[in-house]
Design a binder for these strands. Sequence first.
DNA 1: CTGTCCTAGAGGCTAAGCCACCAGTCCTAT
DNA 2: ATAGGACTGGTGGCTTAGCCTCTAGGACAG
Lengths: 250, 250
Amino acid sequence: MASSETPPDVYDSLRPVPRQRLYLQLVEKLTDFIEREGLRAGQRLPPERELAASLSVSRASVSQALVALEVQGIVDVRHGDGAVLLHEPLGVQVIATLRSRRSRLPEIIEARYALEVKLAELAALRRTDDDLARIDHALALMAVQVSAGDRGEAGDEAFHSAVTAAGHSGLLADIMGEIAPAILETRIESLSQPGRPEASLDGHLAIADAIRSGDPVEAARAMRVHLDLVSDVALLRGDQDIRTHFDHQS
Amino acid sequence: MASSETPPDVYDSLRPVPRQRLYLQLVEKLTDFIEREGLRAGQRLPPERELAASLSVSRASVSQALVALEVQGIVDVRHGDGAVLLHEPLGVQVIATLRSRRSRLPEIIEARYALEVKLAELAALRRTDDDLARIDHALALMAVQVSAGDRGEAGDEAFHSAVTAAGHSGLLADIMGEIAPAILETRIESLSQPGRPEASLDGHLAIADAIRSGDPVEAARAMRVHLDLVSDVALLRGDQDIRTHFDHQS
DNA sequence: CTGTCCTAGAGGCTAAGCCACCAGTCCTAT
DNA sequence: ATAGGACTGGTGGCTTAGCCTCTAGGACAG
């Protein structure tokens, strides 16, 4: 296929990103335009046809961009009338939001911080011997997998699930269950990095120790440290969102 | 069909739906489909062409719907690969679960700790001027209500909602939205206690200050303190569960 | 002044087509 | 055998062309 040979453009390797979707570029241009023109809420954007012509893209693409802005609540597109600005988009904010939403991984990490740190606390306070047994079992499982060269995501999942159960909070557990499938994706990605399964296992041990000794503060701290590991991965392949973890427990 | 002929209804100014945009209908059908088929994160939606055919719409419309889903972080559309589900749209099933748990006040408090503390952190890091304006507006609203002898739950709700928005985490916001009805109950109960609205307002001011000055650690601490207020109430009338807050930030 | 009608121009949506990309396969050269 | 490159089928990305529907506002009648 003609693709593999270097295209007309000589050094187009300057394109690190697989090229952003057109509608996202257009969203950016539109928000720029709004700012540049100083448009306020209630004012109208130029007609689609006009935008398409001046940006040299098809109407369909402009329309997609408007859908994106509409979903974000920035404009209201009115049939037969035009696209009315609802809120000023606050500059780079919008496009940053859109970009970070394209991959929700950063948000998933944030949710894990919120939920699992709390669950670790609760687990330290409430774990029964039975809970501890489940946690230990998960640790053993992952240890076996890791020493066998496996990524050990099954053990990883079992561990987090055991901690969640040990927290004895039905509501939090339900919420965790809801985002669990999404977490799985980050899990696999994280554990695919060299040396990561071992590091993750260490983190688990620290968390388990804290839970065993009934120390909620330490359990929360250990969980944060553990999640920092995961978030690094996610941010690696995801887009550069604002760092979600900072100097915890200063 | 005879669709557009507006029926006998005289006061059609009530017309909330000037007929929904096609892509919105498709978004609905797609989320239904996801739920019905029990699709989990990582799985793929049918190809655009197939969807277009089976829904009897053009590919362009399907594409718009996918843009909407992508902007919302539900799906990741990968060129040459397909549309991959990132996380299930929080479904009705969860809502049902939550509803049945409505009276589990201690659990609701725990969930609020988990979510809102993190959201306060994020808000301190990410708040825009617009976010701050919303927060201040909520503060003002509650101040007025309280000084008028009202419990001020509307202002309270507005405040927490503004903080949630300022966190700029769609997923966490979604989860908050899910448990919001349950929270309302605790809110009213808490604010019904003498002197409580004033104390709550003070808490809000502290949180707002931290968010304004961009101090995530302080924002989290202030939020914890504030929630401690609420949890006292809940524990009063609920079962005396283990204290969920302890020596934070040791 | 008031109400009706008309129409320009805006978005909504479709159809058909070509291009770019990904992953698996098969085939070749080492 | 096996590593590496080309092929291929399927998927999304985007365009062009065109017709339909809706809204707002002006012209015109009453």
